[in-house]
Nucleic acid binder design. Structure first.
Lengths: 147, 147
DNA sequence: CAAGCACTTTACGTTAACGTAAACCTCGTC
DNA sequence: GACGAGGTTTACGTTAACGTAAAGTGCTTG
């Protein structure tokens, strides 16, 4: 009764252009292979801020993108606090004062430096893996000849 | 008295070829900017196994390399358990049976896949950072013109 | 209307990776 | 012989990032 918006759009989700779609927490969870708990946790940590329709959380396209970015950050080893730092400042940008913006640039440079080091680490790690791989195959070959 | 090896090499550390040097826990800690506690913890987790000279831990070149690899793995977001998995199998390689070796190859492929995904993640993350950076500078420029 | 989903809140539990503190040895040196 | 710098063990504390369980709400479907 108090939510007149809930009556019009029922099963028409598929037809809507992606920009205007919205998602339930379960949908998002399945999309990204995380649990609803995780998504709620990210909200609690200030990384997401979905609308409500009554009790239920309604996620819009923007929220989906944020979640995607968050998970990508996680895969790269960033903490939720670090991710939030960037994400929130990004949102505060339009009306941000100069100090905040400079601070943001600082943080960005920092993250970038981090990424560059990771690239180097990956390069080196690859070499190590190749090496171990070669040795292992070698040993396997010899085992074959002995038997 | 019980350690006759301790008498010969006192201050001659610098002159020794790197292969034969050995390190105290404090030295290693400073080299890699971690605490001794961290190094002891890694030992306890089976990632390091230094010699003892009486009570004290003596780290050889091999240990130093292991620590380096461990920390690199950590920077890439691997857990100590994952790192141990590779490191220990690497050591067990020479006399490893075929099953173990195949398992090792499996793990290596897994890690490599992980690295490849990280590369893609880094590429995307860089683009995002560039974007935010550009916007921030834009806003700053406009602030300058207003004031 | 009972049953079954999908969602909600609240709250306590868990794991990894160390930090921190206390209490002790052991050496070179002042 | 006191002492400071480094090392040792033991053990409890902490933080991040969720997991898990309990109990309730709201819809729709047989």
């Amino acid at each position: 009764m108090t939510q007149p918006t809930a009556q019009a759009n029922q099963a028409s989700q598929e037809a809507l252009p992606r920009q205007h779609r919205h998602y339930s927490i379960g949908e998002l969870a399945r999309m990204f292979e995380v649990t609803p708990r995780t998504i709620r946790f990210y909200e609690q940590e200030g990384l997401l801020a979905p609308r409500r329709e009554g009790q239920k959380r309604i996620y819009r396209e923007k929220d989906r993108v944020r979640l995607k970015l968050t998970l990508r950050g996680k895969r790269l080893g960033f903490s939720l606090a670090e991710i939030r730092e960037v994400v929130m400042m990004y949102d505060a940008m339009p009306d941000g004062n100069a100090r905040q913006l400079w601070r943001l640039l600082e943080i960005l440079a920092d993250k970038r430096a981090n990424l560059e080091r990771q690239l180097e680490d990956i390069r080196l790690m690859r070499l190590e893996l190749d090496d171990v791989d070669h040795r292992a195959r070698e040993v396997l070959r010899n085992l074959g000849h002995e038997a």
